[in-house]
Design a protein around this nucleic acid. Structure first.
Lengths: 328, 328
DNA sequence: GCCGTGGTTGTAAACGTTATCAGTCTGTCA
DNA sequence: TGACAGACTGATAACGTTTACAACCACGGC
């Protein structure tokens, strides 16, 4: 390993000058700095991150904690977060908690001294645990909110996308819409249903039903596919794209066609929505941008700058899974 | 921040005893150790990772470099790698290179002093660059092989799965199979086509055709969907599941039905294969296990244990996208 | 009664970096 | 000419941990 001493010896200066040439170039005379930089290049010197962190308390890393990296929603989020933290010179430690609050808690504890801050995406922790974590380490929450601004929050604003979806359905002629809800304890689930109910109420002629809870994956969708049909709605909005695909798959087996027999809308607009046949109309946001916003918010927090709560608007992407209802 | 000094003061011992109580418990008398551990618990002491790495040259972190974390193939790989490294007390730094060799090279350089080892998955680097990286930092390659065992390699053994696929198709009555190939420079592409051609040659009556190259996503599949039909094969095997789904989507628009008009098989058996309608027959391996194998191989390397090259066997998962060819 | 041995603990150095403080040198002004 | 300011650089301490070495103690054998 090549250290600051090697560079100093090579350039014929002290180690202090080497450090200064790199960190505060203005405080070193040009000729000296050039010599140092030349030595750095020749020897391939890279400052040791551990030593730097030890000295000034910053690790240069941040952590992103997600429930399931295989879920395309979190994969996209991660992608955006990764690119952004790299652009700011931070490395990103990704932790997959396998949807377990216990694993999440342990991992957060272990991460504390390794990173400068935490991004907790759709945390499974209780409000109490979350408050403790937020108090101990600088952190940013995604899709959760803590009373009293103990941690900045980055959320998706579901309302605009949901309103657009209902308007879209109404324009096609639908009046009775069924929502297939996600996991019971999910904060997002609550917000989606609320947004949908409110939008339906605002738009006089629409009726919103709800079925669920359901696990937030394709299996969850399959499980309620028949029950959903029985409720006599002409359009179905699913908790997320995966649930929608589960419905689609099971319906296809049952001979129910989308969008001819029933219209279907997903949530999140992940890339799998495009892959389905028919491609899925979906309410979603720019998830990479969402991840980016979270990182920026965390970096601001680390630098003790205050930043307002960020909310990314959702929008409707119309594809092939919605059409006018079948005439009765 | 609570340090070893605080714990020592609380327990009434020296800092050396604190460190020993944690690292070499046998070398400290029971009663003392209990006092130390009690103090650790009371104060919530966590050893500072930076200081530890600085002292004994190990960071306790490893890095996984993938071309695209949104690709379900790499997401599953990452999930397995994450769980395994956690189980061994390592944290995992995930880097998404956005398929760019340049980004990959830069990131690897930056990571060098931050981690104890690298896992390069489907690296986009040239053989020359790869050799340089392998020489500089302990690393493990996934889906690449370097002449002269400069770095251990973890690969997928495509042959068994491909043979099973051809036997499956033959049993159904297919004789003329088309392979839709992936990106030109891809090592995996080469291996898949070779395995397929060899298996077809071994099985006298089968003809294997090839079309491509194609970008390894749904768009790539869509792009060659019509060309693929023109070649008059009764079954198509796609470079990966995403390409297969692209074919499926385009064919569906064209009124071509799967599996009635043409049988379709994907590669990788990612979760999207189950989501398709019809669900996709696919050749794949346990990707989480694959990620796990890579981590284990790297950890062995870090401990200077030698480990043989690992190869994970692929298998065929039959779902609804394959059926007997339509009688002429 | 003395010495050696083995078990337990303490002292201090080292890891590589940054930052504080002091030192050197040049040039300028009284 | 002497002093002083300012610009630049060097020596050194500190970050929190681990570990080599030394110190201490009790005990048993001669």
């Amino acid at each position: 390993m090549v250290t600051v001493h090697d560079v100093a010896a090579r350039a014929g200066v002290s180690i202090a000058t080497v450090s200064r040439s790199l960190r505060e170039p203005d405080r070193v005379i040009d000729e000296t700095r050039d010599r140092v930089l030349a030595a750095v290049a020749e020897l391939g010197y890279r400052p040791n991150r551990a030593a730097r962190s030890l000295r000034h308390g910053r690790t240069g890393a941040i952590a992103l904690v997600v429930p399931d990296i295989e879920n395309p929603y979190f994969a996209s989020l991660t992608k955006g977060a990764q690119a952004t933290s790299r652009a700011h010179g931070y490395s990103l430690v990704v932790v997959d908690t396998t949807e377990s609050a216990e694993v999440e808690d342990e991992e957060i504890g272990a991460l504390r001294s390794q990173v400068d801050g935490l991004i907790l995406a759709s945390s499974r922790l209780t409000e109490h645990e979350l408050a403790r974590v937020a108090a101990e380490t600088t952190s940013v929450l995604i899709n959760r909110r803590l009373p009293g601004a103990q941690a900045p929050t980055v959320t998706l604003d579901e309302a605009p996308g949901v309103r657009a979806a209902l308007e879209h359905l109404r324009a096609l002629g639908h009046r009775r819409v069924l929502y297939v809800g996600g996991p019971d304890a999910s904060w997002t689930e609550e917000r989606r249903w609320t947004a949908l109910r409110d939008a339906a109420a605002a738009d006089g002629g629409m009726t919103a039903l709800r079925v669920g809870p359901v696990s937030p994956d394709a299996a969850g969708g399959r499980a309620v596919a028949e029950e959903a049909l029985a409720l006599d709605a002409t359009a179905v909005i699913a908790y997320n794209d995966l649930v929608a695909l589960g419905l689609l798959a099971r319906w296809s087996e049952l001979g129910v066609r989308v969008p001819e027999d029933v219209s279907l809308i997903g949530f999140d607009n992940t890339f799998v929505a495009q892959l389905a046949s028919p491609p899925l109309t979906s309410v979603g946001a720019d998830l990479r941008g969402f991840g980016e916003a979270a990182v920026l918010s965390l970096l601001a927090r680390i630098d003790r700058r205050d930043i307002p709560a960020v909310s990314t608007a959702t929008a409707l992407t119309v594809r092939g899974s919605t059409a006018p209802p079948r005439p009765r």
